[in-house]
Write a protein that binds this DNA or RNA. Structure first.
Length: 704
RNA sequence: GGGCGGGUAGCUCAGGGGCAGAGCGUCUCGUUUACACCGAGAAGGUCAGAGGUUCAAAUCCUCUCCCGCCCACCA
């Protein structure tokens, strides 16, 4: 199929003509299996979202891993690397909701069941798009084992894990203020919130003091939450306001008595240094309330409207209520001043709606002991985080961790194995995978209905390593040797995998975490679709081919430094491919023109032979050293220099005209160079191998 | 606010106490049978600024200025 004719006739190499064919040729050889006498090298993929489309981050991350995979294969390891995708709760639900919106529908019009059917349809149709795009990167993944986080087996793992946590007393249900998106109608974790800078006002409100003609001035951006105030607080170091401590302020409108307390979370420099404590609608205030035993009074509901505790303002939207309250306070002469300020508004990462903090009954996972497991695993180097500078934020996060809110009130996701009593409501519950046979303690009946709450997506992906690697068939594949990840999911994903693995498997899920560089724009800004600063890797593949893209990315990559993306190295890569192509054309011509017998008589090595052999040896040594520390850029640059300048410009030139070089050395150097190039520019080197050498995958060859 | 990193040739970056480097770009020359997606060569730098340590600083220390990334968050 790939004959010498191709090599002879093409003075230029066109990657677009061959790369797809080469990939098809490889696919059967990507199958993962256990091999006797070979040590495994296991790579854990970061499953992309089913809504995703290939971006530079994926491209870099997986190019690094594929290069490593091929390199390790050629070093003699049995490499295992399985593909998978994540159902990505809110992200996916939002995509389908957007689709519905075009038809003038909301998910509530369809109802839960029909909506979920629709999401599954969407998943069947588009869910594998990103994996198809992964193939375009040339990744050596075993496509016969695609895993999905809502596969039957996977779902079973997640349920089992939750049940196990529950039995050990680590799961609890509690009323607690959570971040809530009134549009998505779901609670959100801190990590799903985006702070957007907006112009707003800082209102200085007067709270009269009990039995005094004086008043206290409190600054707030959200006057409507005052109706839920249960205290005022000042910082213990704040001498100016210290005299207020112990006094009682009176809440306007509702006449509630608010004690003035001390708490270190208060910033004495903000506003007047006095904080109004609203435990139901602020996470910081809730923390203060816990410390001081303050009551929690909710005044805003899940639709961002004022509820029955809001007195005369009940039923108003929170913004309208804010206006009304300010108006009324003005009438009462209880506003000192209003200042314009820039502040960061918490918004829903997915839809941009302003977040409301409201109390909600949610399921929590106690983090104290689990955090310790994760902490110790890295402290003892059971898990190596590289570059090491990421250890510090890792430890800090674990030290200051809060309990993890596991439940979500969206529709798309894995439903929790929780049952509520039909008669008595959600205060009576059972945690069980199947419908419980027990009776409700209250009504003594057995009318259980399953909850509609789903798990936080990250709870499910935290189990990814053993859910995909530790199946009956492939038990030996846990733990993995390496996982690569972007910086921003260190806590969201990596940390949670570590304690999950330690808790359930009693063993770390991977030995090494490589936090790879972030791909920035040429101006050094973040690449982002919404900002329009992203560059589509597929376009670049269409323009230069996959090998060139891989070359360009790796060329720019350093293990420690973020990369400002530049297209020129990709162009350079394409030129390099042509150089390689022509070098082997030349080799083929020379090889054909000399008979083996004639040359094998000459066993003495020329100075050129010695020089190139020495250079090859040094290059290999250098490359090996750099790959071990993930310096793929430096490794590639060394190979480039060796091949282009030392091999082509100097050594090959000595084969023109009469040559006293050894043909054995020539053969050896050309084959070893091809192998050395392969992990970096796989398609081209494979093509040459098929033409000039064997009908075999090049990655099955071992380095000499 | 906390943490991390960067500022070296026109551009992208390497180097990390001992003669300032690479690739791309620019300029000059070269159409000899692998490749013009090429070859030979050249120009181009106060290593952000100031101070210090040292026989010696781009490199180590202190400060200043500028740029960025991640996390937290302003009531």
């Amino acid at each position: 199929m790939f004959t010498k004719k191709i090599l002879k006739e093409n003075t230029k190499y066109n990657p677009l003509e061959f790369e797809e064919k080469i990939y098809q040729y490889w696919e059967p050889y990507f199958k993962a299996k256990n091999i006797k006498d070979k040590k495994n090298f296991i790579i854990l993929i970061a499953p992309p979202n089913i809504t995703g489309s290939l971006h530079m981050g994926h491209s870099l991350e997986n190019t690094i891993l594929d290069t490593l995979a091929r390199y390790q294969k050629m070093k003699g390891f049995n490499v295992i690397w399985l593909p998978g995708i994540d159902h990505a709760g809110i992200a996916t639900q939002n995509v389908v909701e957007k689709e519905l919106k075009k038809e003038g529908l909301t998910r509530f019009d369809l109802g839960r069941e029909k909506f979920l059917k629709r999401v599954w349809q969407w998943k069947e149709r588009y869910g594998n798009t990103i994996l198809e795009q992964f193939k375009k990167l040339g990744l050596s993944l075993d496509w016969s084992r695609i895993r999905f986080t809502l596969d039957k087996k996977y779902v079973a793992w997640v349920e089992k894990a939750f049940l196990e946590y529950y039995k050990k007393g680590l799961v609890y249900r509690s009323l607690r203020p959570v971040n809530f998106c009134p549009r998505c109608q779901t609670s959100l974790s801190d990590l799903e919130i985006e702070y957007r800078e907006r112009e707003g006002f800082l209102y200085y409100l007067k709270y009269p003091l009990k039995n005094e003609s004086n008043y206290v001035v409190v600054a707030t951006t959200r006057p409507e939450t005052m109706l839920g105030d249960t205290a005022l607080a000042v910082n213990p170091k704040d001498e100016q306001n210290f005299e207020l401590v112990g006094k009682i302020a009176i809440l306007p409108f509702l006449q509630r008595e608010l004690p003035v307390i001390l708490d270190q979370r208060v910033d004495p420099k903000f506003g007047t240094g006095i904080l109004k404590v609203t435990p139901a609608h602020s996470l910081v205030d809730y923390e203060i309330a816990l410390r001081h035993g303050l009551p929690m009074i909710s005044v805003i509901d899940e639709n961002a409207k004022m509820n029955q505790n809001a007195g005369e303002f009940q039923g108003l939207d929170y913004l309208t209520a804010r206006q009304k309250i300010v108006e009324r306070l003005r009438e009462l002469n209880l506003i000192e001043k209003i200042e314009k300020i820039q502040h960061n508004l918490p918004t829903c990462e997915r839809c941009g709606t302003e977040i409301q903090v409201i109390p909600s009954k949610e399921w929590f996972l106690k983090m104290k002991d689990l955090a310790k497991l994760a902490y110790v695993a890295v402290k003892r180097n059971e898990v190596e985080i590289y570059p090491v500078k990421f250890k510090k934020p890792y430890f800090e996060w674990l030290k200051n961790i809060y309990d993890w809110c596991l439940s979500r009130k969206i529709w798309w996701g894995q439903v929790m194995p929780v049952w509520y009593c039909r008669n008595c409501g959600d205060d009576e519950y059972q945690v069980s995978i199947n419908k419980p046979k027990t009776k409700c303690k209250q009504c003594k009946k057995s009318k259980w209905i399953r909850t509609e709450e789903v798990f936080d997506t990250w709870f499910s992906s935290a189990l990814w390593p053993f859910a995909i690697l530790y199946t009956s068939q492939e038990k030996k594949w846990y733990p993995a040797d390496i996982v690569a990840s972007a910086r921003e999911i260190l806590h969201l994903w990596i940390t949670r995998m570590i304690f999950s693995g330690k808790f359930f498997m009693k063993k770390e899920p991977f030995k090494t975490v490589f936090i790879h560089p972030t791909v920035l724009t040429k101006e050094g800004k973040r690449m982002s679709k919404s900002l329009g600063t992203g560059i589509d890797p597929l376009e670049l593949i269409g323009k230069y081919g996959t090998d060139a893209l891989r070359f360009g990315l790796l060329w720019q990559m350093s293990a420690h430094q973020d990369l400002r993306f530049d297209e020129r190295p990709i162009e350079q890569g394409k030129k390099f491919l042509n150089k390689i192509w022509n070098a082997y054309r030349f080799y083929s011509i020379i090889r054909d023109s000399r008979s083996k017998i004639q040359d094998s008589r000459d066993k003495k090595l020329s100075s050129y032979d010695k020089k190139i052999l020495n250079s090859l040896k040094n290059t290999k040594k250098f490359v090996d050293k750099k790959i071990q520390v993930y310096e793929f850029g430096l490794a590639l640059k060394r190979i480039y220099k060796f091949f282009w300048h030392e091999l082509c410009d100097d050594y090959l030139e000595t084969w023109k005209g009469k040559s006293k070089n050894s043909i054995q050395v020539f053969d050896y150097v050309m084959l070893e160079s091809l192998k050395l190039l392969h992990p970096f520019v796989p398609h081209l080197t494979q093509l040459i191998y098929l033409i000039l050498y064997k009908q075999k995958p090049l990655f099955a060859e071992k380095f000499d």
